[in-house]
Design a protein around this nucleic acid. Structure first.
Lengths: 244, 244
DNA sequence: GTTTCGTATAAATATGATAAATAGCCGGGC
DNA sequence: GCCCGGCTATTTATCATATTTATACGAAAC
């Protein structure tokens, strides 16, 4: 389920294909972005379609085109990294511990503050989805639920509970971060009970309206992920050093 | 000056025009988004151009089009609020205290954590731009600099100093937030010395590598903005109540 | 050496057809 | 009366081609 990737049309296919190629660094000064006519041949599509695809990538800050000079890749600083598509392209095809670390640092900013805000504004309606997510996590320890989905639901519910549209907009980031981090933490078989307890502790602080406690507990939760990633990175460099 | 809006082509003009119309709520079920042919007439452009503009807005999550049903505005939850263009359209044309408050709450998450990270990783190279921004703020108290630009430079320099590309990507948000918040805080004539001191205190904590202090001081700085906005909102509702 | 200007190139725009998808109507069957 | 299946009109999606505009580069003029 959730295979709701909208738009099975040719244009989006080209956009995805080019988007992935760009974020994975396929193009450079040595291998510049093809001109319109070239792309038409490459994808077997008309110029209109190719142009529309190029415009969509332009809208996401990945490329820029001018007459006579062709289309060129913009410096990464200009990319809309928070665009769900761009994010997905990066993570699906260019996973790295460094990327995950940077991701987690964003979560370290967003989520504790979100928990504080959620606690300050807690109402039965905003708290209910969080409780439900906790229950799903409990169920996952008994193998009755998907642990990753339950975990995501928990973090998303908190962002929702802030009542702030910008926080809601960051749900995609958190979703992506959790989905990729599971590749490392080998807890596919289920969340450890200690982890569920830590999540429950955040929930309880929010429910009781204890903002600073909620923030602190969430921060600890995410710091743990960061430490885990850092440890993994250290191990990798150690292995690399030994290989020399 | 600052007429540096890149791209003087017809397409971007249409994108801007439609983008503003969408985020300001010009379209609804009563007044649906026009069909292709209608837009061509309206802008006096060819279908190619209109289609490309529509595709760019699609890429930003504002609209979606299907055959036979036309193009429709997506629910606000789908908008790429963190896209610089969308953000600009919102702020230029739909400013509200509520929007500014939500903005500032994002800053409350991002900037203190950014200050912590900046302190942890402080090097002469990353610290120098922050110091320079402080000096510009000092100069602005003597009327030798633009206070707003100096203020923005300070906050942007800290985001840069995190070394995290996602934080850098949020510079546009902070920039926009500061530019709009100046509409309220009537300090056009220059930053008060106390404000400069508060900023310098953040800088010093970063320079000394004192992460938690840097975070705490930045948080106070932003909380002040939030309180100011809240006070303004309260005053507005009070006036509205009195008018009844 | 510098400026001016022409030219070639690639995007930007225009036009007009055809294909595909689908919402809603319409008619037939029960 | 109501349900179902196909028909049709509408609108986007795609294609093909032509024309215009912007501009990098080099040649010619000074």
């Amino acid at each position: 389920m959730t295979k709701t990737r909208q738009g099975h049309n040719v244009t989006t296919g080209i956009v995805n294909s080019l988007g992935v190629a760009i974020v994975t660094g396929k193009y450079s000064t040595r291998n510049p972005f093809p001109i319109e006519a070239e792309l038409c041949k490459q994808f077997g599509s008309s110029r209109s379609i190719v142009r529309e695809a190029v415009k969509m990538l332009t809208a996401k800050g990945l490329i820029s085109s001018r007459p006579r000079h062709g289309t060129s890749i913009l410096p990464e600083a200009q990319w809309n990294l928070l665009d769900p598509d761009v994010l997905r392209w990066l993570l699906e095809r260019k996973f790295s511990l460094e990327l995950l670390a940077q991701f987690s640092e964003v979560r370290l900013a967003i989520e504790p503050t979100a928990s504080r805000l959620a606690a300050m504004r807690a109402t039965p309606e905003t708290v209910a989805p969080i409780r439900h997510a906790i229950e799903r996590m409990e169920a996952s320890t008994r193998g009755e639920e998907d642990s990753l989905e339950a975990d995501i639901a928990f973090h998303v519910a908190i962002l929702d509970a802030t009542g702030n549209r910008f926080y809601r907009r960051l749900e995609g980031i958190v979703d992506a971060a959790l989905r990729t981090s599971i590749q490392m933490t080998n807890r596919a078989k289920g969340v450890p009970q200690a982890d569920v307890d830590a999540h429950r502790a955040v929930f309880e602080a929010i429910e009781q309206g204890n903002a600073s406690l909620a923030g602190k507990r969430m921060q600890e939760l995410i710091q743990e992920v960061i430490d885990l990633v850092a440890a993994e990175q250290a191990e990798k460099t150690a292995v690399a050093a030994k290989a020399r």
